[in-house]
Amino acid sequence: MKLYLLPLLLYLFASNTVNAAPTGRIFVTNERSNTVSVISGDSLAVEETIEIGERPRGIGLSPDGTELYVAVSEENKIKVIDPVSLKILREFEAGSDPETFAVHPNGNIYISNEDDAKATVFNPKTGEQVAEIRVGLEPEGVAISPDGRRVIVTSESTNMLHVINAEDNTIESNILVGSRPRAATFTQSGNIAYATAEISGEVVKVDIASAKVIKKGTTGDSSSKPKDVVLSKDESTLYVAGGRANKVVVMDADSLEIIKKIPVGKRVWGLAISKDGKRLFTTDGVSSTVSVIDTDKNEVIKIVDVGKFPWGIVIND
């Protein structure tokens, strides 16, 4: 063996063990089919469907992408799937009615327990509960700042974003927003967050340090009950799932003015954006489809049939 190849081989070996190559797959929970649809990132077609358990909703990946987590709400469990073999590896009890969750850079999972007015933190490797945080009624959306410092839990019936310090898992501030806040997302810096409010049809921009709403926008029509929200890679554009308006609302992330509305399937809730920022995927609950959007053109380029009432979506890229 030529010696000059050694560093390259070592590098490949190391990177393979520490960070498995992402599968490129898109994983979708189907709330009413009790399955997870596995969509190939290359062909954008469903390559497999995993039977997962009753009412799967929240879905997420471990920071290294080697484990897929699914909240199986009616069974009060998180199930762990190998994104390569698609086998269920293990499961653990995740409190009452786990719905949405987010994975912290340290690997822990922050879950909203809708029935119990609390958020719980689990170590998915051991299945142990690490912490419990009392929040408002009907906690729903969970977002974690990219640096891992803060977590937002939205409580729908209490109309609040609870900003949690991830170091000691205590509430740092509570920010009142519009009626029925459902989802939130942080900017890379973690200084700003965006959240949707379903009943008031609002999108709010929040300054985390001052715990204040600094801008409000609306999704434009009364049928539009916004749910998921994601930021474009350059953070200039916001994509909001428009619910029963059956559209993705594209907004200017600074002014919160509407740039475009992209028609997708019925009752769009879930959103996931690829790491390169080029593809946006939506779960269209009532249509039982996933729409694939090209973010350069802001147009749907493919519609994929999945199970009944697709809910959560995550990309292994």
């Binding site: 408002g136 009624l137 019936s157 209490t158 109309n159 509430i171 009142l176």
Partner: peptide, 10 residues
């Protein structure tokens, strides 16, 4: 009860 649950944060 729910108002007081909200009230505890405010």
């Amino acid at each position: 009860d729910e108002a007081n649950l909200q009230g505890q944060f405010l």
